[in-house]
Amino acid sequence: MPELIDESMVVLDLQAQDKDSAVHVLAERLALAGRVTDMEQFLADVRAREQVMATGLEGGIGIPHARSSAVTSPSLAFGRSRSRVDFGAGDGPADLIFLIAAPADGGAEHMTILASLARRLVHGSFLESLRSLASPTEVAELINREVGG
């Protein structure tokens, strides 16, 4: 199973006006990396999840996500937006966007890596590091190290 994220799935200067285009940009990175086989299907599944309830959380983070048959392995695309993108959180738009992709038929072991990612997301120090790191390689390394250990 490949690592959760590599530097090609990190966008440090995300240009997007709204959450649909932000998700689109990040999903394209997943598709280029071979993690998503069918963009249209994956985007539809993410949209369906967004419709159930917005995924913005307080503290400036957005976590669009879906389990989808178009996903090959648990993956994360990460985007940092200077202009911020609204994901429907109570305290305003998000500057850190995590697009989480889970395979539809993934067994429990597949999913533990995503569970461990989700648990890191509530730690302020982890988020601050992601705000300050300068290169995609550093970001990918930090995330893989944190969810692995």
Partner: peptide
Amino acid sequence: CPTGIAHTYMAAEALEE
């Protein structure tokens, strides 16, 4: 949570902390 991959574990971690 509906998808069972993100909010479920974030909430668990936040409550534990």
